[in-house]
Design a protein around this nucleic acid. Structure first.
Lengths: 226, 226
DNA sequence: TACGGTATAATTGTATACAATTATGGAAGT
DNA sequence: ACTTCCATAATTGTATACAATTATACCGTA
């Protein structure tokens, strides 16, 4: 099973509604327990209730909203506790991905991973923080693609998206971004040298460190809700 | 975020459609790439296309079907490779759950876990295989509930359901069910004694062993597809 | 026969209509 | 003022209608 490869066709009305609301929730533009009315959302986006309802059902399954039968849809959002849990889970799963990548990574993926790190070091020396953020995301994407499991790939991508907001904030701090690149390099080298145990361990630590840094720089600020 | 606590209200038409199709896929009553037509499914269940479409969208997000825009919905199902990936992932995540349970398990949950094991041993001595299967499922449920993370709880439950079909088959073999109960006991004792590292390790091993047993008893038979 | 093309049918995508449920507000009674 | 009740409005649940896209089948032509 794949667990949605490409979530949703972006060009259908439902796809647009889904992506819009999802983005609004993940970026924190809704508050927790905000009520979403089908007609209101539909009018805002210029569509009828039908595609809105379908988008709601998907968001419900994903856990981003809660639908109470015959009453309404309420934003669930992501709490500080959720972020913590996600990082702990990601630590384990990115470890698995790194381990599996040793056997499954292609030459092109390996090359892109190396290139990614050299490019990051270059932009770091120039202080291009926005480029660094893009490359950091891409590093993890490559790892997910290289692990050889559509299932794990999807799961990691989903978690990665869920904590995007807090990541983009802390990555913009120069100190952490340097350390992060160094950790990426260790993961890359372990994969390249074929050391599965080392690859897994380095990936575990990388995510743990990322979370420690988030806590240090004030998680509650980004996720003030319960 | 919770990622759907109770998936779907069972009493709405959409909920019934969703559960029906999901069950049919997980139990293997559809073949891979079977096409699902909205009108046909609707007629079979006596409902219109609307609730069927909403159910389809959820199943798509879950990855159990694939929707090609303007063409149709096709069953994705679960392959032998998926089962393998799920078990490796579950090994890590049940480990986390066991670790977290040490700090979060309530007295009632701890009691039920102990009782679960004694009951299982009793039924094992009597050869009540169906009771053992129920208790085995329940043991994992208790663990998920005790871990203190709705997010992890949901994720593990989902994976658990996805491999239900192959589990129910191998658990009915007396040999494995005995070993399985022994492993449950080790997990329970580690949690009770407050040893997080041991709890995690025993849970890791338990799932790994379960998978080894599945392979031994012929996984391909249950999942003959690609 | 084999190949295109076009009309027709079948299917999905979206909007609207109607039904059922829940929320709201105001009048009557205390 | 406070509560209870009921009528009305608002909202969700489902069915149907219409639009757009895709599949099918039949025909003519080489």
């Amino acid at each position: 099973m794949a667990i949605k490869d490409e979530v949703t066709d972006k060009y259908s009305l439902r796809g647009r509604v889904y992506n819009k609301i999802r983005g609004d929730i993940l970026e924190g533009r809704y508050k927790n327990n905000d009520e979403l009315r089908e007609l209101t959302i539909g009018e805002e986006l210029g569509v009828s209730r039908t595609p809105v309802r379908e988008a709601f059902r998907q968001l419900e399954l994903e856990g981003l909203i809660r639908i109470v039968p015959n009453k309404g849809a309420y934003v669930t959002g992501i709490t500080a506790k959720d972020v913590k849990d996600i990082y702990m889970i990601r630590s384990k799963l990115e470890g698995l991905a790194a381990r599996w990548a040793v056997a499954h990574i292609t030459e092109e993926q390996m090359s892109e991973m190396e290139e990614n790190i050299y490019l990051t070091e270059f932009h770091a020396s120039k202080g291009h923080m926005d480029q660094i953020a893009i490359l950091d995301n891409r590093f993890h994407e490559i790892l997910y693609e290289a692990c050889g499991s559509k299932l794990l790939e999807h799961q990691l991508r989903e978690y990665h998206e869920y904590v995007q907001r807090v990541r983009s904030k802390t990555l913009s701090e120069n100190k952490r971004s340097l350390a992060s690149t160094g950790e990426h390099k260790l993961i890359m080298e372990a994969i390249k040298s074929g050391d599965e145990n080392q690859a897994e361990k380095m990936a575990n630590k990388h995510i743990e460190n990322a979370y420690k840094n988030i806590v240090k720089s004030g998680l509650e600020e980004s996720y003030p809700d319960n």
